[in-house]
């Protein structure tokens, strides 16, 4: 149940994707997301699908494991699809009662669904193949230039890494408290909206208390080891680009170029 949420969880295995520099994966995910938003036609989506399938195969993460994370956004997905389907103006395709499904609406709905799915799959894949530590390391290095604008990059990265690190801990904690309250006869599954929301109180109060306690302990532990922020802090294993990282960048550039080309071509043809 609660263990099924995969977003933000690392899947331990050996693969070419796992081995990549986190910066490459960050940029790669960004490029993939950008490519999804400039995609205007079927061909672009075909390119994105092929790219995604290749990455999933290379990553060696079982497909079922990646898809499991999708359950969480099923509702959001439904809502967007329904809105797109019924509320887009254009030439009518089907009409019943007060609702009209237009050709554009159908197209928009499908595109949005695919886009959302790929968006989640793409970003889930990044977190599944990169340890949280690597991820924030990559972010810190990759965004280091923002320090010029007095942005506390290190501190933000540290916050991110702590947040990511705490997701599984808090999930486990939630699971434990849930079970403890169920053992006292609590019921989280039945009843209407209001009853369910009320049933969350015995879960949320202990969860917050424990999160604050953990935060306090962690802060003390860090301070007692003389942590004082990013100033003058060095890394034990600084990130360095390897030959395969360069190759990955080239592949990414090619992929982006192809998608842009396909998008432009389509505009040319339709114009």
């Amino acid at each position: 149940m609660i263990r099924d949420i995969t977003l933000g969880q690392y899947y331990q295995t050996e693969s070419r994707i796992h081995r990549l520099d986190p910066r490459v994966k960050l940029v790669g995910t960004m490029i993939f997301l950008i490519s999804l938003f400039i995609s205007q036609n079927v061909l672009c989506y075909v390119a994105a699908t092929i790219y995604l399938i290749c990455i999933i195969c290379l990553s060696k993460v079982p497909f079922g494991y990646i898809v499991r994370g999708m359950k969480a956004i099923a509702v959001i997905m439904m809502i967007t699809v329904i809105f797109n389907l019924f509320l887009t103006a254009g030439e009518p395709l089907v009409t019943f009662w007060r609702f009209t499904i237009t050709y554009q609406g159908l197209k928009n709905a499908i595109y949005t669904a695919v886009r959302l799915t790929y968006l989640i799959l793409g970003s889930t894949l990044m977190t599944l193949t990169t340890t949280p530590n690597d991820l924030t390391d990559g972010m810190e290095r990759g965004l280091g230039f923002l320090k010029i604008f007095k942005l506390p990059v290190h501190e933000i990265a540290m916050m991110m890494s702590i947040a990511l690190r705490f997701i599984p801990i808090l999930l486990e904690e939630t699971d434990k408290i849930m079970k403890a309250q169920q053992a006292r006869g609590a019921d989280f599954e039945s009843g209407g909206m209001i009853r369910r929301a009320k049933a969350m109180v015995p879960l949320l109060v202990p969860l917050f208390v424990s999160a604050f306690r953990r935060a306090n302990d962690l802060a003390l532990a860090m301070e007692s080891r003389c942590y004082h922020g990013g100033e003058g802090r060095t890394k034990m294993k600084p990130l360095e680009y390897k030959p395969w990282d360069i190759r990955a960048y080239i592949i990414l550039a090619c992929y982006l170029a192809i998608v842009i080309l396909l998008a432009i071509l389509d505009i040319r043809i339709t114009v």
């Binding site: 403890a180 309250q181 053992a183 202990p206």
Partner: peptide, 11 residues
Amino acid sequence: LVFQYPEHQLF
């Protein structure tokens, strides 16, 4: 069933 550290379930 009294869980480990049951005091963490008080709310």
